[in-house]
Amino acid sequence: MGHWLYRNIVEPGKLPLLLALASFVLTFVITRVIVRMIRAGKGPFGNVKAGGLHIHHVVPGVVLIVIGGFGAVASSRYGFGACLCAVVFGIGAGLVLDEFALILHLDDVYWTEEGRQSVEVVVVTAALVGLVLSGFAPFGVNDLSDQELQDRGGVILTVVVNFLFALLALSKGKVRMAVFGVIVPFVALIGAIRLARPGSPWSRRLYRRRPRARARSWLRAYRHDRRWSGPRRKFQDWIGGKPDDELARSLPEHR
């Protein structure tokens, strides 16, 4: 394990990236735990306010991103300074993306249906950074054997092919399958060969004069959403907390 870590993480200069990813995920988890405790009225935590203004944690997150980002640019990939800046950047990114939905909608939608987008963005970000960190790319690793070069080359070719299928799946409106298809083999292929979702660029362009294809597209999308929306919501609720209903959002602020 130590040898693999050195050859694939430390030697190529990926240790700061590993620290940034770890601090990013840990910050998101801790933040969600604290916010859910505040929501439930438990623990010693409370909302941060200044002069009656609710300070969302995206604010310190932006500050930490700026500090960590500029610090990382000013330092090399190696050394304590780079690692420290990576941790600071990861913490800031975790705070910012935890409130991604608030930035997107310019509204406090943290505990609404729209707030689920923050959880999705965090999961996708962690997955993509994990792909970069995986060490399959033979860049920065010295003295690779022919077998190691062949193995890594095969993985890179697979990722490239998956990426092309992911672009096709994206044009069909299958965003999640497109994103995770870059990481998980055959996911993007499934999204690429299946019918496009209604309203997607592929559907608007190629199903315009094909009423049967449009009807099948609408029916499949309806059946898919009815089958998977429940489990997806439960998974998102398990990670980020269940959104408020309309009545709860009409009451005074509780977060």
Rank of each mutant, 00 (worst) to 15 (best):
I91L: 00
V96Y: 04
D108F: 03
V96K: 07
D107T: 12
D98Q: 07
L106V: 11
V96I: 12
A93R: 05
S118P: 07
V119M: 11
L106A: 02
V119H: 06
S118C: 05
R116F: 02
A101P: 10
G115Q: 02
E113G: 10
G115H: 05
E114Q: 15
E114M: 14
V96N: 08
I103M: 11
L104C: 03
E113H: 07
V109Y: 01
V96T: 13
L102R: 11
S118N: 04
S118H: 06
I103F: 14
S118R: 07
D108G: 07
V96A: 08
D108K: 08
L106Y: 02
L97W: 09
F100W: 15
V109C: 13
I91T: 05
F100A: 07
A101H: 13
E99K: 05
W111V: 09
G115M: 08
L104K: 12
L106C: 00
E113A: 03
F100H: 09
I103L: 11
L106K: 06
F100I: 01
L106W: 11
E99I: 00
W111K: 08
V96L: 09
D107L: 00
D98G: 10
D108Q: 08
Y110E: 14
H105I: 09
V109N: 12
E114D: 14
V109P: 08
L97D: 11
D98T: 10
D108P: 01
T112Q: 13
E113I: 01
L97N: 13
I103K: 03
V119N: 08
G94I: 04
H105M: 14
Q117Y: 15
L106E: 06
G92T: 04
E99V: 00
I103H: 08
Y110A: 10
T112D: 15
L95F: 04
E99D: 11
R116D: 01
T112L: 09
L102H: 14
L102W: 06
